[in-house]
């Protein structure tokens, strides 16, 4: 009887993870794509050199996100762990987190009126057992505008 309840709850949690996790992932990807197109005009570079020498102002910009995997993803990852190989369920989680952090950084830079973001860097750390935290940092630069 106990075993039955245990297996039943695992199945319920898997179903919840499948339904809610899948839905939130699809929604998240849609919103990421929308915002990425909007912010496409702002150049983002990991290099540290600038082509323009007339600078008005610089600002440190950051974007961060903490994200958790759902029960189904964790379950699949644990299963795959036995045989090894690609954990595609976690790859999409990392991808979403990185893009979200990057978008938040670009958002902050765009609001400030940046013309370019240079020295861009991404950092990853683990929080809890199956959560990740991504930090995006960069230097936003505002060019001197020609006065008319």
């Amino acid at each position: 009887m106990n075993g039955l309840v245990e297996w039943g709850s695992v199945l319920v949690l898997l179903a919840v993870g499948f339904v809610f996790g899948g839905r939130s992932e699809r929604r998240h990807y849609k919103s990421i794509q929308n915002r990425e197109t909007k912010l496409l005009a702002l150049p983002l570079k990991s290099e540290t050199k600038l082509q323009v020498s007339e600078i008005e102002d610089v600002l440190l910009v950051t974007g961060s996100v903490a994200i958790a995997s759902d029960y189904l993803k964790t379950f699949i990852a644990n299963l795959k762990n036995i045989f090894g190989g690609r954990l595609s369920s976690f790859e999409s989680l990392m991808d979403r987190a990185r893009r979200e952090a990057t978008l938040r950084l670009k958002d902050q830079a765009a609001k400030w009126g940046a013309d370019e973001v240079i020295g861009f860097r991404l950092e990853t750390s683990t929080i809890r057992q199956n959560g990740i935290e991504i930090l995006a940092v960069g230097t936003a630069v505002k060019f001197k505008k020609l006065s008319t």
């Binding site: 993870g17 809610f20 998240h28 903490a66 958790a68 759902d70 979200e100 959560g131």
Partner: peptide, 9 residues
């Protein structure tokens, strides 16, 4: 959130 996934605000 570990069950349903998503951002840990």
């Amino acid at each position: 959130k570990d069950i349903v996934g998503g951002e840990l605000k």
